[in-house]
């Protein structure tokens, strides 16, 4: 036996996400420090909370005995506003989102158009719907029109981006094949591009209807019409039974929308 043959026993350690014990410790300590600081700055008024628990119980009881009747005219009005806003904004949004999305696909549009459309999308997506709603309410006055514009902007931002990304991912061989037959630009769009992205597009649209209704139930809080305004009023007056009724209606409609959009996506695939 020579010395060279005596190798140290091989050790195995699991590879770590972050190599280096010191760095790992530092990251861990940083996280703990952050959590401590973050929790320390939460101001909780415990007296207020204990009062609140009573209200929570009332709210919960409200869910068990929702009151649909006493505010029914308000609820009905709010629902009609929310639904009409959803439909108009989705249709209007799609009409604008289609050309913008097409222009924002690098494999279809020339560069200048691509840059413009991507910029439009970025602007449309920059702010939360609520903030957009605040600005539109300030410009167009209270009511559904401001809400409609808000939802339209958000539809454009959402659909254009996803359509553009989808178009950029299509199978180029099919496009090439249709182009090789001597088809014109619009024919290539129809036969090779639309044929590939249409199912996804319909699915996304159905999904966006669903989202738009949910959002329409929120932007009412800042005065842009819809069921959110009714809900806000009910909570301000501490009418928890009515609030619970409104929430239940929202949940049911959202579930119906989700179910329908799921069904549409399945049949289109």
């Amino acid at each position: 036996m020579t010395g060279a043959a005596i190798a140290p026993p091989r050790v195995w350690k699991r590879p770590r996400l972050v190599e280096g014990a010191a760095l790992r410790l530092a990251i861990f300590a940083g996280l703990v420090l952050y959590l401590v600081l973050a929790f320390a700055t939460i101001e909780v008024n415990w007296q207020r909370v204990s009062e609140g628990l009573v209200r929570a119980a009332r709210l919960f009881a409200g869910f068990l005995t929702p009151d649909f009747t006493s505010r029914w005219t308000d609820i009905q009005q709010g629902l009609i506003e929310s639904l009409t806003m959803t439909v108009c904004a989705t249709v209007f949004g799609i009409v604008l989102a289609l050309p913008i999305g097409l222009g924002a696909a690098r494999n279809v549009a020339p560069f200048w158009l691509y840059a413009i459309c991507r910029a439009v999308i970025a602007v449309a997506r920059a702010f939360q719907e609520i903030i957009v709603a605040i600005l539109f309410v300030a410009m167009f006055g209270f009511g559904t029109f401001a809400g409609f514009l808000t939802l339209s902007i958000s539809t454009i931002g959402f659909l254009s981006k996803l359509i553009a990304d989808d178009i950029e991912e299509i199978d180029p061989a099919q496009v090439e094949a249709v182009r090789a037959t001597g088809a014109g630009f619009w024919q290539v769009l129809d036969y090779a591009v639309a044929a590939q992205v249409m199912p996804r597009f319909v699915g996304l649209t159905a999904y966006k209807v669903d989202i738009n209704f949910r959002e329409s139930s929120v932007i009412g809080i800042v005065g842009a019409g819809g069921i959110g305004a009714t809900l806000n009023t009910a909570l301000d007056r501490y009418e928890f039974e009515s609030a619970a009724a409104i929430l239940l209606i929202i949940i049911v409609i959202v579930m119906l929308c989700e179910y329908a959009s799921g069904w549409i996506r399945k049949t289109m695939a």
Binding site: N45, R214, V218, I221, L235, I250
Partner: peptide, 28 residues
């Protein structure tokens, strides 16, 4: 899961502020 998803964070906020009073805790 469905119930949690169908109510927007802002509405949850609205409810929790009514219950807990305004503040960061309701937001979290």
């Amino acid at each position: 899961i469905v119930a949690s998803r169908s109510i927007n964070a802002l509405i949850w906020g609205l409810l929790l502020v009514a219950v807990l009073g305004p503040g960061v805790l309701a937001g979290i």
